[in-house]
Write a protein that binds this DNA or RNA. Structure first.
Lengths: 207, 207
DNA sequence: AATATATCGATAAAAAGATACCGATAACTA
DNA sequence: TAGTTATCGGTATCTTTTTATCGATATATT
């Protein structure tokens, strides 16, 4: 159940957006071929992706029940359970993420922000308290936090990561544009806007 | 030269961060095996990635000259030429991207922001003028813009994309969490934070 | 009720990507 | 100067992912 490829996860996420749109339009059922056509993805790929995660099996001449399918994808992507996470680095980007109310829809609950700047400590951003980094371990154990978001300047990214790992965090979501060393048992996902951009730019140049 | 795989581009971007760190530490040369070891990537993969884009060939027992390698990666990723882009949707996230000075280092120059909100039109964010969306086509043709960033609320994402495509933009970088329909000849890169998160969360669950 | 058709899901083939192996080469060492 | 060693780069293999093909099935149509 857990061995979904990264590309498949990426696509599932796209299907989800697409299906929610369709549902809002009042459409009840949809076929994999229709999805594939609208999204410019090979139909068999779509079928494979859906077959792996769908509880229902699609009906010939009808397709899949959209509502059930949305639920299945959400479950597969982990959006239906709630994970507590913390955020370290309450700068501009940190603010944006703290303020983004949509995360709950993705099974993510930011319990608190952390910083070393005393002028930020004690404030509240969008209902989330900002603590000094010293209190990280407390919060992590209290709220059973497994994931942490890094939005500090790149000079402090390694130190922030070390703090979080010491506090018991197992998964890092890194927005700082730098390489971070982590032990084997910790996962990291680098959110590198520049590389996304490079991919787009590269595709564009091919034309 | 242009047919670098997406995964390779992703990795090249990581190498770049890593190599810049090493350069700052005063290190002159580095071997692919060292890079691979530090980054937990297979050594052959690193060699292949570098071989494809490096102008120099690495020297036995020394490795690659870091400075040259950095330059080669930047060239391969398109960071050494400057592309003009526009941004549509001057909300919170739009502000962050407009304010981010690091883009220049990635060959990206945001020439202007666009919005429909009259209270925003005419203002300047971080040196970049905000225009009404009606003026998009003018700016695109004047500055030879090929790429556009979408940071509008998801309800308006399709309309924004249509505007940009009509204005002649060929590549879209979409931050709105929704599916966008585009013609065949236009490229789109969906920047889906939720799916990144799902990938991390999924890896975490495997353990 | 019988037939036609759209769709699914499974199996097979093809393509892409990652990994292993090995000879060649240039720097280090004695 | 000669031998040793670390590293590169190319070829071959293996794995993963995508795409193609085909029979089965449920729905719609006549």
């Amino acid at each position: 159940m857990s061995d979904i490829s990264k590309r498949s996860i990426d696509r599932l996420s796209l299907y989800l957006h697409y299906l929610r749109d369709k549902k809002e339009q009042g459409i009840k059922d949809i076929s994999s071929v229709t999805i594939a056509g609208d999204m410019n993805i090979n139909a068999v790929t779509v079928k494979k992706d859906l077959a792996r995660i769908a509880g229902q099996s699609g009906k010939p001449r009808i397709g899949f029940d959209i509502e059930t399918l949305i639920h299945d994808i959400q479950t597969a992507l982990g959006y239906n359970k709630l994970d507590n996470v913390v955020l370290v680095g309450v700068g501009q980007l940190g603010h944006v993420l703290l303020s983004y109310n949509g995360f709950a829809g993705y099974g993510l609950n930011i319990v608190a922000g952390f910083d070393t700047d005393q002028s930020k400590v004690g404030t509240v951003v969008c209902g989330k308290p900002i603590f000094h980094i010293d209190r990280l371990a407390d919060v992590v154990s209290k709220y059973d936090v497994r994931m942490g978001i890094i939005t500090v300047p790149k000079e402090h990214a390694q130190a922030a990561a070390d703090c979080m790992i010491a506090a018991g965090i197992q998964g890092l979501w890194n927005f700082a544009p730098t390489h971070i060393n982590i032990p084997e048992n910790v996962m990291i996902k680098n959110e590198d806007l520049a590389s996304s951009l490079a991919i787009l730019s590269n595709e564009l140049r091919k034309k």
